[in-house]
């Protein structure tokens, strides 16, 4: 079972925090396919947030195909989120790129800014 922690001052919408924390739990293997998410009632009793916020987050997870709502039973994890393994081609390419950036004299912050900018360009409107 996952427990949500809501940070009121993070500037991230509350429902997005629930979506992100669910995905994080999936990536870390704290949630696996077949696991049940807490009911809206359980989440709001613990966090004092509005029930619709939880439902909105669960709908978003459902839309992304990560969970499924079973009528009268609850919301269940449908599939896990795999982390790209350390020896995957994408990771090796990125590794190589980072090495070249460092050789070109870029600092950590420069690289991060560059990476974020490219990320924003290719993944517009997603989080």
């Amino acid at each position: 079972m996952v427990e949500y922690r809501i940070d009121r001052h993070s500037g991230v919408a509350t429902y997005v925090q629930i979506v992100q924390q669910t995905k994080q739990a999936l990536r870390l293997g704290m949630l696996e396919p077949g696991d049940k998410l807490p009911t809206a009632r359980e989440v709001v009793e613990a966090t004092a947030i509005n029930p619709n916020t939880v439902l909105k987050a669960y709908r978003e997870l459902e839309r992304e195909g990560l969970v499924e709502a079973r009528r009268g039973l609850g919301t269940f994890i449908r599939k896990g989120l795999s982390i790209t393994p350390a020896d995957s081609p994408l990771r090796l390419e990125l590794d190589d790129w980072a090495e070249r950036a460092r050789e070109a004299g870029l600092g950590r912050d420069d690289v991060a800014a560059l990476f974020t900018a490219v990320l924003d360009k290719h993944f517009q409107g997603e989080d």
Partner: peptide
């Protein structure tokens, strides 16, 4: 939390007044 659980479970309409907005921000829609 108790009030929100009530709203989630029974669909109760809740109206609450306050002059502290921050206190209500996450709970009210």
């Amino acid at each position: 939390g108790l009030l929100m659980a009530q709203a989630a479970e029974s669909g109760t309409t809740i109206v609450m007044s306050s002059h502290v907005v921050a206190e209500l921000e996450d709970s009210c829609d």
